[in-house]
Lab assay of single mutants.
Amino acid sequence: MASQGTKRSYEQMETDGERQNATEIRASVGKMIDGIGRFYIQMCTELKLSDYEGRLIQNSLTIERMVLSAFDERRNKYLEEHPSAGKDPKKTGGPIYKRVDRKWMRELVLYDKEEIRRIWRQANNGDDATAGLTHMMIWHSNLNDTTYQRTRALVRTGMDPRMCSLMQGSTLPRRSGAAGAAVKGVGTMVMELIRMIKRGINDRNFWRGENGRKTRSAYERMCNILKGKFQTAAQRAMMDQVRESRNPGNAEIEDLIFLARSALILRGSVAHKSCLPACVYGPAVASGYDFEKEGYSLVGIDPFKLLQNSQVYSLIRPNENPAHKSQLVWMACNSAAFEDLRVLSFIRGTKVSPRGKLSTRGVQIASNENMDAMESSTLELRSRYWAIRTRSGGNTNQQRASAGQISVQPAFSVQRNLPFDKPTIMAAFTGNTEGRTSDMRAEIIRMMEGAKPEEMSFQGRGVFELSDERAANPIVPSFDMSNEGSYFFGDNAEEYDN
């Protein structure tokens, strides 16, 4: 993207840094990872977990959730003011799984939030270390993106479920800051804005008074975040219109849905970061690795190297396929839920299948599930090659597409044709070009129609051997075009429920 120079890199967003050079960025990201790792080690000690239990991804998720809940100030305040039966607002906890007599047992633990905050700050040299908290939120978000298709949420806001490739980060909490905003897809931002506008339509006082002023500035800020994701002048001009509207209503909703559809071809720039579970960072720190000293990046080879040398386990339900569970977590670790499966298959070195073909449910185990038949197995999170994460949407291309997802959002900077089903997408653009945004709409449609099938995206960008740390010898991959490109292809993934 041309304006790259004016933006802070995501590592800076990730670490609240002012302008830093590459070495400083690597050190501050490393410091953040160190903090998460030290916190995780301490929690495993508190909970008396064995090494194996500490490497269980379900335990990692519970521990991450506990610290996120302990620092969720708004919710904590709300819980104190609106006490609900049987919930102690000062405590947080969740299921911890232990191996007892050759069987997995679930144990519900409860801790004072104050105590968890103390352990977290102690692991982070006394700081609140917001960057580390956001990092864990993005890992949870990436896992949700890989596990669930947001059909219901899309339909509720009037969008087409086939636009799911635009929904990265749709389950990120509001408090995820600049680093969170960077990884949100165009569809996620559109959905947040539509929800806001709908509230304004239904509630006369939404934009009024002292609160209304705050609401208005939040609305304009979200519009600017979305505008910054678009790469064409016409899309940005249309966002200006939406932002400046005196009284946002149905016309703005129409414009936003139009823009979301246009992003299936004229893709937005959305950041991709490899955020790993805390149970990967903990053992690495415990083994003596100093992330701050060595430096770390979320968008280069580092996460690949770390996963190459990590042992992570997962509980497996009786009829689940461990290899499929591994694929789910591998995609989440690489922030690749909406990437082209052919690119992923090449990088991973084994075939990556669409969601609907995987015999696996989510990673988390519900409290009512029976533990008797639970097994555990090693997650295979290694890769054959590594590639640089991208934040450009890439230019655009036609490809055989599917009944489910009709476009992709690249996660890796790797040369390819970008699949999208042009006739299906263009069919949504018939007729409606009147109104105050008509010239911009016409211009956007013209650009979409001009998108050429034979153009290559990320020209000359390749993948790298894991021994090639400096990215000196790019390998331009070859793809098996007979395979499906979309992950949520004609899909039956479970729906995400809060």
Rank of each mutant, 00 (worst) to 15 (best):
residue 468 D to C: 04
residue 72 D to P: 03
residue 117 R to Y: 05
residue 311 Q to G: 00
residue 266 L to A: 07
residue 380 E to Y: 10
residue 42 Q to Y: 07
residue 270 V to Q: 04
residue 361 R to E: 10
residue 121 R to D: 07
residue 444 I to A: 07
residue 441 R to W: 12
residue 16 D to L: 10
residue 21 N to P: 14
residue 452 K to G: 15
residue 168 Q to P: 04
residue 45 T to I: 03
residue 311 Q to R: 00
residue 288 G to Y: 10
residue 289 Y to C: 08
residue 126 G to M: 09
residue 189 M to F: 02
residue 306 L to A: 04
residue 10 Y to N: 00
residue 213 R to S: 03
residue 403 A to L: 00
residue 100 V to P: 15
residue 205 N to H: 12
residue 95 P to V: 06
residue 77 K to N: 04
residue 367 S to T: 08
residue 30 G to D: 09
residue 401 A to M: 08
residue 418 L to I: 00
residue 305 K to C: 12
residue 477 P to N: 11
residue 73 E to D: 08
residue 45 T to Q: 02
residue 246 R to I: 13
residue 33 I to P: 10
residue 31 K to I: 04
residue 295 G to F: 10
residue 311 Q to A: 03
residue 2 A to D: 10
residue 218 A to F: 09
residue 269 S to T: 14
residue 1 M to P: 10
residue 240 D to E: 07
residue 80 E to A: 01
residue 457 S to G: 05
residue 174 R to C: 06
residue 333 C to G: 05
residue 171 T to S: 03
residue 322 P to K: 04
residue 397 N to T: 03
residue 419 P to R: 05
residue 213 R to Q: 04
residue 220 E to S: 05
residue 207 W to H: 10
residue 161 P to M: 06
residue 8 R to E: 11
residue 262 S to Q: 07
residue 72 D to F: 03
residue 384 R to I: 14
residue 48 K to F: 05
residue 462 G to N: 10
residue 343 V to T: 13
residue 414 V to M: 05
residue 485 G to T: 07
residue 217 S to R: 06
residue 484 E to L: 15
residue 306 L to D: 08
residue 154 L to C: 06
residue 447 M to H: 02
residue 449 E to D: 13
residue 455 E to G: 06
residue 446 R to F: 05
residue 88 D to M: 02
residue 155 V to F: 02
residue 332 A to M: 06
residue 139 W to F: 10
residue 147 T to P: 13
residue 234 A to W: 04
residue 41 I to V: 04
residue 72 D to T: 12
residue 67 V to S: 02
residue 308 Q to E: 02
residue 267 R to M: 12
residue 151 T to Y: 07
residue 481 M to P: 02
residue 145 D to F: 10
residue 145 D to I: 08
residue 257 I to N: 05
residue 257 I to V: 12
residue 361 R to Q: 08
residue 94 G to A: 07
residue 240 D to W: 12
residue 87 K to G: 12
residue 315 L to W: 08
residue 121 R to I: 02
residue 358 L to N: 11
residue 483 N to S: 03
residue 171 T to Q: 14
residue 408 V to K: 13
residue 193 L to Y: 13
residue 76 N to E: 04
residue 270 V to T: 12
residue 137 M to R: 12
residue 311 Q to V: 15
residue 250 N to K: 06
residue 365 I to F: 15
residue 29 V to M: 07
residue 117 R to H: 02
residue 159 M to K: 08
residue 361 R to G: 03
residue 261 R to M: 12
residue 192 E to I: 10
residue 18 E to W: 06
residue 232 T to S: 09
residue 414 V to H: 06
residue 338 F to I: 15
residue 340 D to Y: 03
residue 24 E to V: 02
residue 150 R to D: 10
residue 56 L to D: 13
residue 182 A to I: 13
residue 194 I to D: 08
residue 187 G to A: 02
residue 390 T to W: 10
residue 9 S to E: 10
residue 429 F to C: 05
residue 145 D to G: 04
residue 331 M to T: 06
residue 412 F to Y: 00
residue 385 Y to S: 01
residue 129 A to D: 09
residue 188 T to E: 15
residue 89 P to M: 00
residue 493 A to H: 15
residue 67 V to L: 06
residue 381 L to N: 10
residue 207 W to K: 10
residue 53 E to R: 13
residue 297 S to W: 10
residue 161 P to A: 15
residue 171 T to P: 03
residue 57 I to D: 06
residue 463 V to P: 09
residue 189 M to Q: 01
residue 100 V to T: 00
residue 100 V to I: 12
residue 309 N to M: 00
residue 463 V to N: 09
residue 454 E to H: 02
residue 208 R to P: 04
residue 41 I to W: 04
residue 51 D to Q: 00
residue 182 A to H: 14
residue 136 M to N: 13
residue 9 S to V: 09
residue 117 R to A: 12
residue 350 T to F: 01
residue 64 E to I: 00
residue 280 V to I: 15
residue 386 W to P: 08
residue 117 R to D: 07
residue 337 A to M: 06
residue 16 D to W: 10
residue 398 Q to F: 02
residue 176 S to D: 14
residue 392 S to L: 13
residue 414 V to Y: 10
residue 242 V to Q: 07
residue 238 M to N: 13
residue 105 M to A: 02
residue 281 Y to M: 09
residue 396 T to L: 04
residue 1 M to W: 10
residue 154 L to M: 01
residue 475 I to A: 04
residue 31 K to N: 03
residue 124 N to Y: 03
residue 90 K to C: 05
residue 340 D to I: 11
residue 237 A to W: 14
residue 20 Q to N: 07
residue 203 D to P: 13
residue 167 M to R: 13
residue 194 I to G: 13
residue 449 E to R: 08
residue 197 I to N: 14
residue 81 E to N: 06
residue 199 R to E: 10
residue 167 M to L: 12
residue 291 F to H: 13
residue 472 A to D: 12
residue 445 I to S: 03
residue 105 M to S: 14
residue 221 R to S: 12
residue 414 V to F: 10
residue 49 L to C: 02
residue 392 S to C: 14
residue 170 S to I: 08
residue 84 S to Q: 01
residue 298 L to K: 13
residue 182 A to Q: 01
residue 446 R to L: 05
residue 115 E to G: 09
residue 223 C to S: 13
residue 476 V to N: 12
residue 164 C to V: 15
residue 398 Q to D: 04
residue 307 L to I: 02
residue 333 C to E: 13
residue 366 A to N: 07
residue 481 M to H: 02
residue 430 T to S: 07
residue 431 G to V: 12
residue 352 V to M: 05
residue 328 L to V: 07
residue 337 A to H: 08
residue 446 R to D: 14
residue 398 Q to C: 05
residue 425 I to E: 03
residue 179 A to F: 13
residue 369 E to F: 11
residue 292 E to G: 14
residue 471 A to K: 13
residue 245 S to P: 01
residue 373 A to D: 01
residue 162 R to I: 15
residue 195 R to N: 13
residue 470 R to H: 11
residue 430 T to M: 15
residue 486 S to F: 12
residue 298 L to M: 05
residue 480 D to H: 05
residue 471 A to T: 04
residue 140 H to W: 11
residue 69 S to V: 06
residue 343 V to H: 12
residue 151 T to G: 04
residue 65 R to P: 01
residue 456 M to H: 02
residue 123 A to N: 04
residue 310 S to N: 13
residue 35 G to T: 12
residue 181 A to D: 04
residue 219 Y to T: 08
residue 47 L to F: 04
residue 259 L to K: 07
residue 282 G to C: 08
residue 319 N to R: 00
residue 314 S to A: 00
residue 172 L to H: 14
residue 466 L to K: 12
residue 30 G to F: 09
residue 368 N to K: 01
residue 216 R to T: 05
residue 89 P to C: 00
residue 153 A to I: 13
residue 27 A to P: 09
residue 172 L to M: 15
residue 279 C to I: 08
residue 302 D to K: 05
residue 192 E to W: 14
residue 160 D to K: 10
residue 336 A to D: 05
residue 41 I to F: 14
residue 131 A to W: 12
residue 282 G to K: 13
residue 227 K to L: 08
residue 350 T to L: 00
residue 263 A to Q: 07
residue 153 A to N: 13
residue 241 Q to S: 02
residue 347 I to L: 00
residue 407 S to T: 06
residue 453 P to L: 09
residue 317 R to T: 07
residue 431 G to Y: 05
residue 245 S to D: 13
residue 143 L to M: 05
residue 108 L to S: 04
residue 128 D to T: 13
residue 338 F to K: 10
residue 199 R to W: 13
residue 341 L to Y: 12
residue 360 T to D: 09
residue 357 K to C: 03
residue 364 Q to C: 06
residue 104 W to M: 04
residue 82 H to A: 00
residue 451 A to S: 04
residue 292 E to Q: 08
residue 433 T to Y: 00
residue 239 M to A: 00
residue 280 V to A: 02
residue 307 L to G: 04
residue 179 A to W: 10
residue 434 E to I: 00
residue 187 G to P: 03
residue 358 L to Q: 11
residue 307 L to S: 11
residue 462 G to M: 10
residue 216 R to P: 06
residue 205 N to M: 03
residue 178 A to W: 14
residue 19 R to Q: 10
residue 187 G to C: 07
residue 150 R to T: 04
residue 495 E to Y: 15
residue 54 G to H: 00
residue 356 G to K: 06
residue 194 I to A: 14
residue 18 E to L: 00
residue 200 G to H: 07
residue 25 I to N: 05
residue 247 N to Y: 07
residue 411 A to T: 03
residue 304 F to V: 13
residue 283 P to E: 04
residue 235 Q to H: 14
residue 443 E to D: 15
residue 157 T to G: 14
residue 6 T to R: 11
residue 43 M to Y: 09
residue 282 G to D: 12
residue 355 R to D: 10
residue 448 M to D: 09
residue 300 G to N: 11
residue 268 G to W: 15
residue 410 P to H: 08
residue 265 I to S: 05
residue 348 R to E: 08
residue 11 E to S: 03
residue 307 L to V: 04
residue 353 S to M: 09
residue 317 R to P: 13
residue 326 S to D: 08
residue 379 L to D: 11
residue 3 S to G: 09
residue 175 R to Q: 10
residue 455 E to P: 05
residue 423 P to A: 05
residue 201 I to V: 15
residue 245 S to Q: 05
residue 197 I to H: 12
residue 313 Y to Q: 07
residue 41 I to Y: 09
residue 389 R to F: 02
residue 365 I to P: 06
residue 100 V to W: 10
residue 50 S to M: 01
residue 372 D to S: 01
residue 399 Q to M: 04
residue 459 Q to I: 05
residue 338 F to M: 14
residue 438 S to M: 03
residue 488 F to N: 11
residue 291 F to C: 08
residue 113 K to L: 04
residue 433 T to V: 01
